[in-house]
């Protein structure tokens, strides 16, 4: 019985410990990294790495349904951060950690303004 390509790809990932970063939820493509020494044992003794790639490609094809023409595996590997016209460097993130805060709060702020405990229990009224 033939099982679906999506399932086969999931099984391949589990069997060979291929690291998968699934960012479908973020509407960006799935990125898979295949270890170089990955081979699929088969009695025909053929190197089955091509089968792995075939099924992973198939996974991409099935997932990326919004693309009129499915993107090749190499595309995803090369263009991981495709939403950025120019990918951001690691240093950028290190420097701009707290970019949402117009002015980061000092450590002392939290110590001074620690949330106070209730003077009485709101449920039973006990002090």
């Amino acid at each position: 019985m033939k099982v679906s390509d999506v399932l086969l790809a999931t099984m391949l990932v589990s069997a060979f410990g291929i690291q998968a970063q699934d960012s479908v939820a973020n509407k960006s493509p799935k990125i898979l990294t295949i270890p170089e020494d990955t081979t699929l044992v088969d009695s025909t003794q053929t190197s089955e790495i091509s089968l792995i790639v075939k099924h992973i490609d198939s996974l991409y094809n099935n997932r990326a349904t919004n693309n009129p023409k499915p993107l090749a595996k190499e595309y995803f590997v090369k263009n991981r951060a495709t939403n950025n016209p120019q990918p951001l460097t690691k240093e950028y993130f290190v420097k701009n950690k707290a970019t949402n805060n117009p002015k980061p709060l000092a450590k002392g702020y939290f110590v001074k303004n620690r949330p106070r405990p209730h003077l009485y229990c709101p449920a039973c009224g006990r002090g």
Binding site: M1, K2, L8, M11, L40, V41, E48
Partner: peptide, 13 residues
């Protein structure tokens, strides 16, 4: 799973 995978891929099971 590794050993059985080629059998699944070929639809032999």
């Amino acid at each position: 799973l590794k050993a059985a995978l080629p059998l699944f891929i070929n639809g032999e099971i």
